[in-house]
Design a protein around this nucleic acid. Sequence first.
DNA 1: TACTCTGATTGCACTGAGTGCAAATAGGCA
DNA 2: TGCCTATTTGCACTCAGTGCAATCAGAGTA
Lengths: 197, 197
Amino acid sequence: MSTRPHREQIRREGIRALQAAALSLVERHGFAAVTVDDIAAEAGVSRRTFFNYFPTKAAALFDPDPDDAERLAQLLADADGAPELWPALRRVCTAFVTGHENVIAVRRRLIEQHPELDQYHRTAHHHVEIALHEWTARQPGADPYVAALAANTAATTLTTSFAAWQPDQDPATLVDLVDRAFALISTGFTRHSDALH
Amino acid sequence: MSTRPHREQIRREGIRALQAAALSLVERHGFAAVTVDDIAAEAGVSRRTFFNYFPTKAAALFDPDPDDAERLAQLLADADGAPELWPALRRVCTAFVTGHENVIAVRRRLIEQHPELDQYHRTAHHHVEIALHEWTARQPGADPYVAALAANTAATTLTTSFAAWQPDQDPATLVDLVDRAFALISTGFTRHSDALH
DNA sequence: TACTCTGATTGCACTGAGTGCAAATAGGCA
DNA sequence: TGCCTATTTGCACTCAGTGCAATCAGAGTA
C-alpha cells in the first residue's frame, strides 16, 4: 500500500504495464509458453517486482481492474436499500457491463484462443461474486441463504453471458444477454419465457 | 487407460488410497504444509505415480469420484426427454445429493478448516457443471443460451447449498437446501417466495 | 548541495509442483 | 520357464512462488 497519492499513481502504471505485457505475450504464445520472467522483462521490471504486484501469473491477466472494482462497489452502494434483491441485482449487473464490452471482448478472445485460461477466468470472477454477496447479505431483512443464492445466481448470469457472447457477430448485445438471463430467472425458466426468444 | 477389467480395479484402489492419504494429511496439517511426496509416501507409492493418477495435488482432494460421475451421468440419461428443463434439473440435482451427505460433509469440513481450499473446490465443481450443460444442450428444442444458463444456474444451486449447509447443526437437510434453491429460482426470487421461510 | 529517512525494487537462494524420458519391474499368458 | 506389455519408478529439468537482505530512488530538511 502507498501512503502518498503520487505513489499510488506510479503503482497503477506499473500494474498496467505488466498487464499489457502479459496480455500481449500470452496472446501470441499461449499461457504455458510465457514465463513470469518474460512478462517482467517485457514490462522492463524485475521478476521479483512482478510478484510484488501480482500474487500469481494468471492474476496479471485476470485480476480485476481497480477502477472496475470501485465502479462495482459504487453501483452496489447506490443500490443499497432497494426493496427487492433480484431486480436490484439486475440493474447493478446490467449497468456494470454497459460500456465495457471492449474489455470483456479482449478476455473473451483470449480464452477462445487459449482454452486453458478458462479456469483462471472462473476464479477471477470470484471477486464479483464476493462483492455481490456482501451487498445482498447486508440488505436489511434478507435471509442469509436467499442472499447467498441471489448473489451467486447473479454472478452466474454474468459468466454465462460472457461465455455465450459472440462479439464478432454482434458486438452490441452483451448487456442484452445479461438482461435476458435475469429475465429468464425472474420467470423461473418456464416454457413461456423460453418462447420469448 | 486399462484394457483388462482387473487393471481397472487396481487402478481405482490406487486412486482411493491416494485420496484417503491426501484427505487425512491435509486435514491434519493443511493444504500448503502437505507435499505430494508426503501423500505418495503415505499411500505407499512413488511421487511419480501420484502424478500418473492425478494431474495436480488438489485433484486428489476434489476430483470427482468415478462412481459419482457415473451416477450423475445415469441420472441425466434417465431424465432425457423431460418436457421442462428446470424441473428435470431439480429432480436430477436433488437425487444426486440424496444419500451422499456424508461425502459432502467431509469436504465441507475440510474447507471450513482450511479456507484456502475453496478455490480448488470451485474448479472441481466444473465437472458437474459440464455434465449438466451437456445434458441441457442435447435436449431437443432447447435454446443454446437457455440451456447454458439453466445448467450453470443449477450448478450454482449446488455450490450455494454446499456452502450454506451446516451439517453439525442439522445433518439431514442438504437435499432440502438444494430443493429450496430450485424453488426460489422457480419463483424468480419474489418477495413472496422469500417469505416462505 | 549534502544528508536522511522511507518505501519500493532487486538479487539470491530455496521449496515444491508438474513433466518428459528411459530404465526397471510386475504380472498375464503361451 | 520365458516373452510381452502396461505400469511404476528414478532422475533431471523448468518454472511458480516466497523470504530475506541489500540496494536504490526520491521527497523532505537543514
